[in-house]
Design a protein around this nucleic acid. Structure first.
Lengths: 347, 347
DNA sequence: TTGTATGCGTTATCAC
DNA sequence: GTGATAACGCATACAA
């Protein structure tokens, strides 16, 4: 920058003003500085700028595993949304490691490398409750609702989404509706809410939730869905429908049904959550609950930028829309008794 | 740091020495400084360190789209490998935008925010050839072999991989073997090499490559595979096997076969490349060529770190292993004439 | 409107 | 072995 100033025969102050797009700079001066910048191929050093301003222009996106398709899709949208607003994105994986989540949240790690964190947590609500939002770095929670209003959240209505999926299964004539994805440990908000929605929908249909039909899943991957579905199919009274808390679980569950010599949807209907492209190309195509990931990403990025600008802001809960998509994997059986509720075509 | 120095009644120099694990520091002094660090909960500022040393400890991973499963899996391994070596990873998406690739490569963008770049390019070899490795930032190319030896590369032998996949199809009795994934434009190394391997395998089996059986694919996504397969199936003489240049293309192709009322593998065998988990759970399970992604990621990270350490190093070409995995989608037909070549069980 | 001078938190050079 | 101090490149308070 000194070289540019010398070359344009002005002070560094003026160069800095031009770079920052400062208003009160004469046109002649601005042009001269611009020319010098061009000529010397000068580019400001973002690190020095950061040291001075305290802003890095970097956001962290923290997810359990980036290669889980839902998180990969989220990352895509977050990176794009951030780029639009002049931010770069650093991706971190916790690998389902609670201790690592803690360290990231408390900032015990790599402090000050990013301005804010978009966090898709496994942490228990209890652990979050212990934390003081004012002492942590700017933080937006994705996918989890912790209703104490102290943190920013962006998430769908998990209870309603689960209710919708389950009600859809019931409306197509299924009566023995199982679910895969509960978390045995306390504190995980998402699985708890989805379990609640599932049970509420059963009760609303006059069906008694059967504990044997509610299967846990350590993670939300295909293998977990496969294993859980195998256990369900081995039950003396096997279910005729399975609500999986993720599409990945559902893909595993469908494969388990086929490996058991049964058919989807005739013997067992399957529905998931996430609307992965994978499910659209599956055979049969997978019914699911679609989340508006681009909306979630944009909202999250806007929220974190606002909070970076003013950390004292109150927590904001953003509810993202969701939509039931009915495809082949939950096609009605001959036993259908009630008309299906509102359900998008699911192409 | 000044506070720590004052608190321990030493100079900042000594504190810095302790932080850096410098040898010549007396035990007593070290203990006193450590105590002060603990007491004040001091943590060094990485930005200031970067300004001074010129090292950010950040690598950039540049891919076309992070939500393409292969790239998501690569990102997972790269992030983990980088973390092991004390590096963070920034993810950038080019979105198939050549201009954006150029800017990233020439460093016209965000200079000096990272120490090196792991780049999975679409750029033509010609464009890379124009560049001077010594003027660009440390760079390792992933998935592309440009045999001028000036850049570091980590990739499989694309020609051999395509040869293996095609030879496998032929060995199971297929005679009308199509391929999806060619790139009409010049310069893309990967599709060109795979096309060459495909054609070489046909010739080696005494089959004449039919231009009508070689279909382009704009990207390597499911929709591209679906569309290309539909066109192939509409041919007067329809193929009895399709070699897809990616598993995603293959998933789309399989769906197209089913939608045409045909069966995989009986009417049309399908094989892909990448060994996505998705293919293992598909019905039928997808035969594929497996790439050793963890190896690729580790090798790439080691390579870039070496180059950061010494930019004058000569370019190194690393060849990653690949393996043919035979699953249901290429099960032999009754017409099989030759014994199948070495082929892993593909579980 | 523009120039001068100081400091952001490190590391490294020089003395001691 | 340790202390004082310059420098990394930028932004800004203050002076002109």
């Amino acid at each position: 920058m000194r070289d540019v100033a010398a070359h344009a025969r002005v002070s560094v102050r003026t160069v800095s003003n031009v770079m920052a797009g400062y208003q009160h700079v004469s046109e002649a001066m601005r042009a001269r500085v611009q020319a010098a910048i061009q000529e010397l191929d000068y580019r400001p050093n973002p690190v020095a700028r950061t040291l001075r301003t305290g802003r890095t222009g970097v956001l962290a996106l923290v997810v359990p595993e980036i290669d889980v398709p839902y998180f990969a899709g989220l990352a895509r949208e977050v990176i794009n949304a951030a780029a639009t607003r002049g931010y770069q994105v650093m991706v971190d994986q916790t690998g389902h490691d609670h201790e690592r989540e803690r360290r990231l949240l408390t900032g015990a790690d790599r402090t000050m490398l990013f301005d804010g964190v978009l966090f898709s947590p496994l942490v228990t609500a209890a652990e979050l409750a212990e934390m003081d939002p004012s002492t942590t770095m700017p933080l937006v929670l994705l996918g989890e609702h912790v209703f104490d209003g102290r943190f920013d959240h962006v998430a769908i209505d998990n209870t309603q989404a689960a209710y919708d999926a389950t009600a859809h299964l019931v409306s197509t004539g299924r009566r023995r509706v199982a679910a895969i994805g509960e978390q045995p440990q306390e504190g995980y908000a998402t699985p708890r809410q989805r379990t609640a929605g599932y049970q509420a929908a059963l009760l609303a249909a006059g069906l008694e939730p059967d504990p044997a039909y509610l299967r846990p899943a350590a993670h939300y991957r295909r293998a977990d869905g496969y294993d859980a579905a195998r256990e369900l199919l081995a039950l003396p009274q096997r279910p005729d429908a399975i609500f999986c808390f993720s599409d990945l679980l559902a893909m595993g569950a469908m494969r388990a049904v086929f490996d058991a010599g049964l058919q989807v949807p005739d013997d067992v209907a399957v529905i998931g959550v996430d609307d992965l492209e994978e499910g659209r190309y599956a055979r049969p195509s997978l019914s699911t609950v679609s989340l508006d990931t681009p909306y979630i990403a944009q909202e999250a990025v806007d929220r974190i930028i606002a909070r970076i600008g003013d950390p004292s802001l109150p927590g904001v809960q953003t509810r993202a829309p969701h939509q039931l998509l009915c495809r082949e994997s939950t096609a009605p059986t001959s036993m259908q008794t009630a008309p299906s509720p509102a359900c998008a075509s699911g192409s």
